[in-house]
Amino acid sequence: MEFISQPWPWYVSGPMAAIILLLMNYFGKGFGVSTNLETFCTIGGAGKASDYFKKDWKEQTWSLFFVAGIIIGGYLSSHYLMSSESIALNPDTVTDLAELGFANAGQSYLPAEIFNTENIFSLKGFAILIGAGFMIGFGARYAGGCTSGHAITGLSSLQLPSLLAVIGFFIGGLIMTWFLLPLIF
């Protein structure tokens, strides 16, 4: 039980993510999450705006079940499988974040400075949340996948586009973390 309630080390989590890829492929589907965003658009009637979304979303039902499972897995693990909310961070990270104005870094999964429910009702807070989401959705679909589809599936099957996409993930992530976050916060 001790193992279940503690955070899992990388050498457990990484291979287990690979098992997810194995299971998906065994049951006849690829491992990827971001395609569901397009399915949401199709269900919402985006086919009226662009032929791109004129698809039969029912063919993606399996994938909607997959993301529903992720939500349930998040619920179950946050309610029953966690001994503490805190994240054991590198002390340097905590110092860096304190300089940015993030108090209590690592005492919860998400920083209140970005994810407090009240932030939804402030212009800046809302802009950060919706803007970050927009870049994820737009970028993932333009690049043709996200962390699961490109970084894990694409790199492991030695696909050059995925290597380029992952290089892009890091160009964007490094610029945001090192240069833009200090301007935003």
């Binding site: 737009f138 970028g139 993932a140 333009y142 690049a143 892009g168 964007g172 945001m176 833009l180 976050l181």
Partner: peptide, 11 residues
């Protein structure tokens, strides 16, 4: 596309 995704991921 990857770079735009990276911005959103890090934010």
């Amino acid at each position: 596309g990857g770079t735009i995704f990276g911005f959103g991921w890090a934010l």
